[in-house]
């Protein structure tokens, strides 16, 4: 990898008592690169995502974004602003509509005059326009997930973390998301996505990391890793 990494995970571990959720993960992702974390349920994908986004504190190791430790640096929240995270279950405010969620996030991140245009594009691409004035309680799970995605994409960021982003999305929405991610890659965004739907990550991810029981068992360029023995043995393809 020639370009300097935007996000760097060093010796990242998380334990709950005797239970090892993640052990010694090292990962670097450069601008414009996409890395797929693949593995079964309980393999450590979501733990990695939550640690990398700052939602969990690591037992050991560090996560740095543009050189700033997002867990320990005094201005960690500024570094976190460069991170955009789409969790596996949407986290929305009960009392804000779809459009207001996007306005809030865009405004808070200082998106200026182009905010309305960005909102319009995202609502259109994600097929949310007709539901722009709906509250989360009035949306299906898939629609809530798309709202969460739109919230993430409405503001500027350098690193995009997506935890099982296609769960609950119908095939056309998966395709729209894929196009958005390809566009983000071409704009120099570093992407880390966790999934066990390899059809979604094929052609999108440049590299893959196979996790099993909290440990990395294979890593490298996407095609060889996915075609390799470890992925086959785990039944991932």
């Amino acid at each position: 990898m020639s370009a300097s990494p935007v996000i760097r995970l060093r010796g990242l571990s998380k334990r709950y008592g005797d239970v090892v959720a993640l052990e010694g993960l090292d990962l670097e992702v450069a601008a414009g690169e996409c890395v797929a974390l693949i593995g079964h349920n309980g393999s450590g994908k979501t733990t990695t995502m939550r640690l990398a986004s700052g939602q969990l504190e690591p037992t050991s190791g560090s996560v740095t974004v543009a050189g700033v430790d997002i867990h320990r640096a005094p201005d960690a929240h500024r570094a976190r602003a460069a991170l955009a995270f789409v969790p596996d279950s949407p986290l929305l405010y009960d009392d804000l509509t779809v459009a207001e969620h996007l306005e809030l996030v865009g405004l808070a991140h200082g998106v200026g005059d182009e905010l309305d245009e960005r909102i319009a594009v995202l609502l259109d691409v994600l097929d949310l326009e007709e539901r722009r004035d709906f509250l989360p309680v009035q949306l299906s799970r898939g629609m809530r997930q798309k709202t969460q995605l739109a919230c993430t994409l409405v503001r500027p960021f350098q690193v995009l973390l997506l935890d099982e982003p296609v769960v609950g999305l119908d095939p056309p929405s998966q395709e729209s998301l894929r196009e958005l991610l390809e566009e983000a890659k071409s704009e120099g965004i570093a992407i880390v996505l966790s999934t066990h739907q390899l059809r979604f990550s094929e052609g999108l991810a440049d590299r893959a990391v196979v996790l099993h029981d909290g440990r990395v068992i294979d890593a490298g360029d996407y095609e060889p890793v996915v075609a390799g023995d470890h992925a086959l043995r785990l039944g991932l393809r």
Binding site: P87, L91, L92
Partner: peptide, 13 residues
């Protein structure tokens, strides 16, 4: 409501 789901606020800077 923010305290109910603190993770939601992580999308704000």
């Amino acid at each position: 409501a923010e305290a109910d789901q603190p993770d939601a606020s992580r999308q704000l800077p």
